[in-house]
Write a protein that binds this DNA or RNA. Structure first.
Lengths: 124, 124
DNA sequence: ATATTAATACATTGAATAGTGTATTTCAAG
DNA sequence: CTTGAAATACACTATTCAATGTATTAATAT
């Protein structure tokens, strides 16, 4: 529950080349992007990530308790997130503490949360 | 292939309440957000959306040709996108032209593309 | 009316994936 | 060394979902 973040890094994104003039997405580019969105397209992972944003770092059991899910499920998803380079870990005795290492994710999560609220308001 | 967009609307997003202090995501909030990301977590839909950003509007057959996919597949995904309120359509004779009606999607697509490039550079 | 093209509806199939249960690894305490 | 807790590895199941094939609807032209 400690709140020690490494600074949210307000704009981790480059100056922006205009999207409308980019070449049509290649299969590979689309693939990369899909991988990112897929990682975020899961409600367990989203809640885990948000918990990490709030707490700074957490171990599996803490998260398991907080989200009321089995440790295996949490561990599975953490592994996925780690494979994507989104979270990192540090061991302390029996516990392994995870933290977000990719600041972009925080950004896009924030952005997406905002958008989803608006989108919901508009589309229904 | 005409390029007539209704202005990308540079910031469709509100002033930003700080993410780290928000309450833990409820299952419903997470669900909304997941729905958004799921919609974007598909390479066909991403390429379709980008094509739409570039062209302004396209009909199924045009898109089918451009992306080298069967019309049914394109139509399927357009239906999904329409159900989510992301695209809208307009009929002109035999052809039905689709366009993006949710400016947020352009934003997050742009953002995501940028991030995925950086993330790729970092994580591998 | 008939033929033709565009798009969609619907059922089916195959692939990806999240959660579970079981077993195993890793560390700390006694 | 043994015990117990935390985390992971692995196999398995159920579900979700994209693409396909077939059939149908909608509009235009002859």
């Amino acid at each position: 529950m400690n709140s020690r973040e490494p600074e949210p890094s307000l704009n981790a994104c480059l100056p922006k080349p205009p999207l409308g003039e980019r070449e049509l997405l290649t299969a590979m580019q689309a693939g990369e992007l899909v991988a990112l969105f897929k990682t975020l397209a899961n409600d367990t992972r989203l809640r885990m990530l948000h918990a990490l944003v709030r707490a700074g770092e957490m171990c599996v059991s803490e998260m398991s308790d907080l989200l009321a899910m089995k440790p295996q499920a949490i561990s599975n998803q953490l592994t996925r997130l780690a494979d994507r380079g989104i979270v990192g870990s540090r061991r302390n005795g029996n516990n392994i503490y995870y933290r977000i290492v990719d600041p972009c994710v925080i950004e896009i999560l924030d952005h997406g949360l905002c958008l989803s609220e608006e989108a919901k308001a508009r589309s229904k």
